[in-house]
Nucleic acid binder design. Sequence first.
DNA 1: TTGTAAGCGTTATCAA
DNA 2: TTGATAACGCTTACAA
Lengths: 334, 334
Amino acid sequence: MNPPESNRAATLRDVAALVGVSPRTVSRVVNDEGGFSDETRDKVLEAVEQLGYRPNVFARGLITRRSRTVAFVATTLDDPFFPEVAQAVQRAARAAGLTMLLAVNEHDPELEVELLEQMEMYAPEGVIVFPAAGDAEHLRPLLDRGVATVVVDTPLDHDRAALLVSDLVGAGRIAVEHLIGRGCRRPAMLTNDQLDVSSDPRQQGFVAACRHAGIDEPTVVKAPATTHGGRQGMALALEVVPDLDAIFAYNDVMAIGAMQALTARGIRMPDDVAVIGCDDIALNTMVTPTLSSVRNDRKQIGQEAVRLLGALVDGRRFDEPTVVPVELVSRQSG
Amino acid sequence: MNPPESNRAATLRDVAALVGVSPRTVSRVVNDEGGFSDETRDKVLEAVEQLGYRPNVFARGLITRRSRTVAFVATTLDDPFFPEVAQAVQRAARAAGLTMLLAVNEHDPELEVELLEQMEMYAPEGVIVFPAAGDAEHLRPLLDRGVATVVVDTPLDHDRAALLVSDLVGAGRIAVEHLIGRGCRRPAMLTNDQLDVSSDPRQQGFVAACRHAGIDEPTVVKAPATTHGGRQGMALALEVVPDLDAIFAYNDVMAIGAMQALTARGIRMPDDVAVIGCDDIALNTMVTPTLSSVRNDRKQIGQEAVRLLGALVDGRRFDEPTVVPVELVSRQSG
DNA sequence: TTGTAAGCGTTATCAA
DNA sequence: TTGATAACGCTTACAA
């Protein structure tokens, strides 16, 4: 009959002793398992409150082999898109009672695997990952180990993976339709040279929509997906098609680089060249001219990712990717 | 005598059985506690490798009441400064074998406390926090509970806290000295209206340096620390001091808002008004004109924060704040 | 509706 | 230098 020592955190036993029930009953109430009377529940919850009882995640995890966490792997935090998604994931995770583990793969698949293995030790409910590489093959061992995984914007054929993709084909199409609609006839696309280009959905959408509009061989220029790459790519595009009148960029960071290159040459936007980016980062309203962009809703992506994870944990399987819609946000640049 | 079942993760016992020693010996080797022969160590490590043994963090945490994690709380991820620090913290943490837990307080002290309590359940080695409010009093209970805590850029008097601050007084001073040096005589400061203004070190540095230069009552205007707030604040400042010739802003995001307001009025930078921001975010090179700023090295902040945490855990105490130096990065705006 | 007993995989304690 | 044994606080299985 030791009284609970005040400098030790309260345990299930302490609560049980205070109420006069067994630890097992307290456990049932705390985890809302059912199988107890309303009266018992009320008394237990009161004692929990009174003692400030917090379950010990280690003792729990030792048995359940699960912690109430979500591992989130972003590609980088330099591109403001990922912080926004991370924040959305945090919110959705918190609403589900989960703590977020965050890691950044820095575009390096090996680092990604290492980080995932480290996070895996904490037995998260599951993993949400923007893979470092254009494919997600390096994630296969993880999935084979049975970890519930949501893979974003990257193809992977595995029955334990849930794929979540923005409608990037739609993004390319919407951008082209908008540009055509405002009278552009010679659009070019700046794409990410890191990617397996043929499989980039934005580009597929861009090319398909161009063909649909009667532009059979639209120009596509490859460069790094950075501001600097945008400047480079823009310079190159102007060499290839000196009279181009529209640009669709892989992302906003590249688009901003392109705008800098255009400004430096005295080319006016959108009158001479209309520019549309992709992602719609907050920065777009701060540049001059403000940048039009195709937006995918990060809040929705974060929520959907956490929801898919929950479904995976509950045993659901997904044959088809879940698609998050996109929309054009029209500003000064195009 | 069960052989280790192949679908169960290997445990200390499995390794011990394979080598022919006791689990305790394996534990000693794995944790490098000493008290074993070189021969034993080699055999154990080989078996660890062979079986792919990974310590169970839950079993370990149950005893040690510690997990090898660092909890990092940022204010927001909208301001690119924090993602950069987060990445630096991740790198430093990884180098120390720690996994990062990330949370965003969204400027809300109550949310911050809740998030910290949630993360605390995972018994991190310690916490690195950019407090939500201008003071860190809401962190006092956390510290009283004995959690090793590094508090960044915010005052708090507590013997278990290590304070880490950028030299923001220096930032204000450097900015003024630079502006005076380029001939400005009527500088104004845009500051964050969320803060307890009298205690903002940037402002202290700004005012002190102005006085030192013979400007006794420098103008300080309060507005939200956002782009929009920067526009508002700039408009207000121009009403108060129509002939001002220099602006020092609380952060770069505000400075960019101020630049937008100036551009909209046809006021040239830096000829009519020189603008200097604070933080030096990547965005500064993307705006027109490029924004001069006072930079604090996030890599250094992240590293230093993790280092301080380690020292706290080892029992060291810090009476004085650790100061990270700042430097002026001069660009087109001022 | 409630309780009992066992054990998860590790580290701490103490003995050899 | 090593090992036996006992926790750590919880959930699972089963019994009452």
